[in-house]
Amino acid sequence: MSKYDWAPVERSSADCGCRHIHSAFGATDTVFHPVGAAEAPQPMIHGTASWEARPPRQAITLLNRRPTGIVIHHTASANVADGSLSHAKQIARNIQAFHMGQRDWNDTGQHFTISRGGYVLEGRHRSLEAARSGQRHVLGAHAENCNTEFVGIENEGTYIDRLPTTAQWTALVQLCAWLCKQYSMTADNIIGHRQCKSTECPGERFFGKLDRLRQDVSAL
């Protein structure tokens, strides 16, 4: 596994209601939603402009159809303690610099990134726009053999022998639930990167929790 397993070769306050979801650690986290909100509302997502992304080299390819599933990744980077938003934005910039500089790609490969602090950031330009429409799919570069059909979510850290933080897990469940609602997908089609190609990603421990992820997403 490379130092950065961020993607393979590119192809192509008033009262509020609450819902409980179980984290990967067996604890119970409380996620608050406004009364009357639709199921699986959009979580807070920091767009490309907010983290000062470079513009893509060429126009983003926007497919005129919905994706059919979600691929879960880990960045295979350090499991840092810094859970700040500023750190999360720097991670997004680092990934884009790696993909555009060393990989010579058009833009960030994945559609969304989740920091260890639980911040969700847009990755490839127009990913958030496409997801909000619920009808179109940005062609990514996160998983060879799966790019045309799957949304890619990178999770900061290395999860071979450990698990994401509770904040990260909660954000991942919320993001996956919203994407499934937007694109009329079921949680059954949330898969790990290793199911697209030969790789350790998203790490042995994390991969072993994907059934739990599907359950938590379905519950939300």
Rank of each mutant, 00 (worst) to 15 (best):
S50I: 01
R66E: 03
Q168W: 04
F150G: 01
W6G: 11
H20Y: 12
H74P: 00
L163K: 03
A76K: 10
A27P: 00
I60E: 08
D29M: 11
G17Q: 15
Q195P: 01
G109S: 12
I91A: 09
E39F: 14
Q174V: 06
F25I: 07
H74S: 13
G36L: 08
A131M: 15
L163G: 04
S23T: 15
W51P: 06
P202W: 07
Y4Q: 11
F32M: 10
T108S: 14
G203D: 08
T165P: 03
A92P: 00
R205Q: 14
P55I: 01
N145Y: 15
L220K: 02
E156R: 02
S12V: 10
P34N: 05
E122Q: 09
P8H: 10
W169C: 05
G192C: 12
A171H: 06
V80Y: 04
P43K: 09
L213N: 07
F32E: 11
Q58N: 15
R194S: 08
A143H: 06
T165L: 06
G157F: 03
V35R: 12
A53Q: 01
I95L: 12
L163P: 04
L175W: 05
P8T: 10
E149V: 07
N106C: 06
F32K: 09
D29K: 11
D5M: 09
A187H: 00
Y159W: 06
A177F: 04
D216I: 01
G140T: 12
R19S: 09
T75D: 02
V151W: 01
